[in-house]
Design a protein around this nucleic acid. Structure first.
Lengths: 61, 61
DNA sequence: TAGACTATGTATAACTA
DNA sequence: TTAGTTATACATAGTCT
């Protein structure tokens, strides 16, 4: 999705990998929150970047 | 996305809620896996449906 | 029920500043 | 860099099986 199609494999370029991580991470968290709300589900999500930074979310229901 | 725009609030109808849960859950897990691969990140995701069924994923890096 | 279709809303790859 | 834009690929809401 986007200007071109991409293969699902590790992005070699460190800069693009970081940019993609930032964008896709926010998309993933948004969808996790939406699933919890729309479907009354409990969702827990934890992500560690390759540099070790942690991001998490937990719905409370 | 889809034929109409929806509000992000609990879906009242139990049947549509279950159908939406099933569709969005698979989309969420797909995106979690893609993030892990593309960005070399570690991702853990756990979801409990409103009926108590558990679904999870953990990347191994 | 659960699966397929498809029109349309959304996420995002590539680009620009 | 990091933030904003935009063209396009993708996800999915409503529908029909």
């Amino acid at each position: 999705m986007g200007r071109g199609k991409i293969e699902i494999k590790r992005i070699d370029n460190a800069t693009s990998r970081q940019v993609t991580f930032s964008k896709r991470r926010s998309g993933l968290f948004k969808k996790a929150k939406e699933l919890a709300i729309l479907c009354d589900a409990e969702v827990g999500l934890i992500v560690f970047s390759s540099t070790g930074r942690q991001y998490d979310f937990a719905s409370t229901r």
